[in-house]
């Protein structure tokens, strides 16, 4: 009976995570759509940038500060990048929720495993990998 109960909870958590993923993707798409629409209204008539030569994006598109500053000013391209951030955050939050779920189940082995995964992702975010 206890095992059955555990199984049910397991399933509830899995369903919650699945729903969360979908909401995350839809939110990210909605933000990107809004930003994209605004971008086309503002600069749709302009010539397209030369994408055949890689220049790399400036801090306005690549840092939290730059993106949020642009969003506050209502810049279309930074709104798109905000959508990108939400999209990137979605699976990372998924790992975090799994960590909570395993902790609730007192499955310490998987708490450790999930912490390692989260650690690797956070390392790549903040580990100064900007070579």
């Amino acid at each position: 009976m206890k095992q059955l109960k555990n199984l049910m909870e397991d399933r509830d958590i899995a369903l919650f995570i699945g729903r969360f993923l979908r909401v995350g993707v839809l939110t990210a798409s909605a933000i990107a759509l809004l930003g994209g629409f605004w971008y086309l209204v503002q600069s749709g008539a302009a010539d397209m940038p030369d994408y055949s030569r890689f220049a790399g994006e400036g801090p306005g598109y690549t840092t939290f500060r730059g993106i949020f500053k642009g969003v506050a000013e209502g810049n279309a391209t930074e709104i798109i990048q905000l959508g990108v951030l939400v999209l990137l955050a979605t699976p990372i939050f998924r790992v975090f929720f799994s960590l909570l779920a395993f902790a609730l189940e007192k499955d310490w082995l998987y708490v450790v495993i999930t912490t390692i995964v989260l650690g690797i992702i956070l390392f790549s975010m903040f580990g100064g990998l900007k070579i």
Partner: peptide, 26 residues
């Protein structure tokens, strides 16, 4: 999703993600 996010955060910081390409593609 998780695998791609781990490398995408590196690429975002390196300036590989251009908004003008990102939104139609996504």
């Amino acid at each position: 999703g998780v695998t791609a996010a781990a490398s995408a955060v590196v690429y975002l910081q390196r300036g590989y993600i251009d908004p003008g390409i990102a939104f139609p593609v996504v």
